[in-house]
Amino acid sequence: MNFASDNVVGASAPILEAIVRHNGGAMPAYGADPLTLGLTPRFRALFQHEDLAVFPVATGTAANALALAVMVPPFGLCLCHEEAHVMEDECGAPEFYTHGAKLHGLPGTGGKIAPDTLDGFLSGLTRHVKQMPPRALTLSQLTESGQVYTVEEIAALCRIAHGHGLTVHMDGARFANALSALGCSPAEMTWRAGIDILSFGASKNGALAAEAILVFRQDLADTLEYRRKRAGHILSKGRFLAAQLEAYLADDHWLANAAHANRMAARLAEGLGRIPGVRLAWPVQGNELFPILPDGLDEALRRGGALYYDWTSRSLPAGEAVRAGEGEEVLDLLRRGREGGDQADHRLARAHRL
């Protein structure tokens, strides 16, 4: 049982089939192929935004770092949650591609920044040349604690950020899971709420290696093509990135995968909740679980071959704590649309029984 990451299983069948299907014959290179050119109208229709600019890349780190590079100058400050992926898990890539801009983490329960926290921080800054000026806010959706920002919360944070002259980026590594949880449209969760740039994730939800930077403001898109090339993320055989994204979106495959993952997470959480001594640090809203386990159960699971991560308790809800004899662990539920039927039930049953 491997619950360590959404990335440990392979790509979904429709995406692999699309790569093979588009492998034959000759196509223009470096993104000039019909598949890549077709992504822009496809995403524009999906997000209901006629000026949306689309930049496929191979990794989420590249998507986040390049997006922030067009939003934050070298002397600027980018605000995020103190446990955000861009701050803790990207080896300084955002700082590298912004040529020295700084990430500043804000606290918040469940990996979420509260509007009052953001407004208080921005309002308390001095405006002096010695102070790095804030230029952007980045939000993780889902958060690193598996929580979902509601559309209203996103809009409130964007209003505050824009009011202080910041642009807003969304790290959508689990964008589909959040969208499935909220039941809203892609437009409502992004540009209509005030998001300026989205890192649209696909690799955690069935793709082989495909993400997209979606820019809702043309002034922010102007230099991104050059930055993407300098970063080595314009693939010579770009058709294979486009083929993945095309298959990912076709017939709502991306939404089916995410909905299945969320259902399996909820089902596993229900089973864990019936085990004496086990409780969840945060409610299950997407495809991530954070159970607080008795040490004995933790040891038994690990001896039995279960793989999952230890996790930080920094953003636990008020009044919650990991007590003596307990360990907080993270189970990133690995369920794809392709893992339906008996295979998914069998894996869930094993985890449930343990």
Rank of each mutant, 00 (worst) to 15 (best):
V330L: 12
M264G: 00
L35K: 13
A207N: 08
A259P: 02
I19F: 03
I113Y: 00
A161Q: 07
G337T: 04
S180A: 15
P186L: 03
G124I: 05
A176G: 02
R42D: 12
G337M: 01
C78N: 07
A259K: 09
M132H: 09
F290Y: 09
L293R: 01
A161R: 00
M170Y: 03
L249C: 12
L301N: 07
H162F: 15
S203F: 02
G319S: 05
F75Q: 14
V54D: 00
S145W: 11
D33C: 12
L125A: 06
S185N: 08
R336E: 06
R239F: 14
S123T: 15
L334Y: 00
L272M: 11
T61Q: 04
I234P: 00
R323F: 01
F75G: 06
S185P: 07
L241T: 03
L301T: 07
L316C: 09
A281L: 08
A13R: 15
P317V: 09
S185C: 09
L208T: 10
G305S: 05
H164K: 15
P317C: 08
G273N: 09
V9H: 09
H260G: 05
T40C: 04
A181W: 02
R350L: 13
R335T: 14
D89V: 12
L268K: 03
D298A: 11
L137E: 03
Q48V: 11
E225K: 10
Q141G: 03
H164Y: 14
A318T: 14
S123R: 15
L182G: 07
L77K: 10
T223W: 01
A193F: 04
T36W: 01
V72R: 01
A258Y: 04
F240Y: 12
T117A: 12
G10E: 13
I160D: 02
A261F: 00
M132Y: 00
R42A: 15
F43Y: 15
L68P: 01
R353C: 11
I19T: 02
R192E: 12
L348P: 01
H85V: 14
Q285M: 13
V54W: 02
A181N: 05
A210K: 00
A156S: 15
F200I: 07
G108L: 14
I15P: 00
P41T: 10
